[in-house]
Design a protein around this nucleic acid. Structure first.
Length: 210
DNA sequence: AAACGCTTCAACCGCTGGATA
DNA sequence: CTATCCAGCGGTTGAAGCGTT
């Protein structure tokens, strides 16, 4: 019957991670690699649940994560991908390998949502003719679906343009997430600015990655 | 300087699908 | 086939930081 029982949640620590915990987690993963998160708290002695460890690694400690200001290009990509894929942040993040889904989600919720709302407000009544009126009784379902398809195609085109600098416009024939294609594989791990201290502490271990 | 409100973002929660026994 | 576990995902929360009064 099933797998061995899951860890109970007695004595599980919550809240912000300390640098010490980060170091423990990073050194464990450097040694064993990511995955088998279930074993991480047991093997490291961290009083965290496996979920928390995985989240901390993928959203914060993983090498190659870029933090801070999103570039215009990234912003455009997120907007277009969101139009294309909806709130599938993990899927969107796969096109921006240096960004985490959590980061993109936060950026969308805090910046882009507001920005787009402003733009729509600026457009005023015009926007009412768009998707936002999909549920209205004014247009038939068929019309709405056609309009939706047009919007998707437009978003694809725009995304294609956003991606175009130096890249073949493969979007319409099936764009592949960056993680599926050859990964840019940074020559040296780019650590998040907020984890620079940890990176520094771990500097001696960096060689293992390359 | 203090109080207040707003914004940001790291972390948690709950759910789902795939894997496993 | 069924029950259970686990990894991953998206939504949400709350503490910390920041700006304004």
């Amino acid at each position: 019957m099933g797998r061995p029982p899951c860890c109970d949640k007695i004595g599980v620590k919550k809240g912000p991670w300390t640098p010490e915990e980060d170091i423990i987690l990073v050194s464990y993963i450097q040694e064993h690699g990511p995955g088998n998160w279930r074993a991480v708290p047991t093997n490291t002695g961290l009083l965290r649940c496996s979920k928390s460890c995985r989240l901390r690694w993928t959203n914060y400690l993983r090498p190659g994560i870029k933090r801070g200001n999103f570039t215009d290009h990234e912003e455009k990509m997120i907007i277009h991908l969101q139009a294309l894929l909806g709130n599938r942040w993990a899927a969107i993040a796969s096109y921006l390998p240096q960004r985490t889904d959590n980061d993109i989600k936060n950026f969308w919720n805090t910046h882009l949502k507001k920005k787009l709302r402003k733009i729509q407000a600026g457009q005023g009544d015009q926007s009412r003719d768009g998707l936002s009126s999909a549920g209205s009784q004014q247009i038939s379902r068929g019309q709405w679906e056609r309009r939706l398809q047009t919007d998707i195609n437009m978003a694809r085109q725009a995304l294609c343009e956003a991606l175009s600098p130096g890249k073949p416009s493969s979007l319409l024939t099936g764009l592949k997430p960056a993680c599926v294609n050859e990964k840019p594989a940074p020559a040296a791990p780019i650590y998040a600015s907020s984890t620079e201290n940890i990176a520094r502490l771990l500097k001696g271990m960096d060689d293992k990655w390359s």
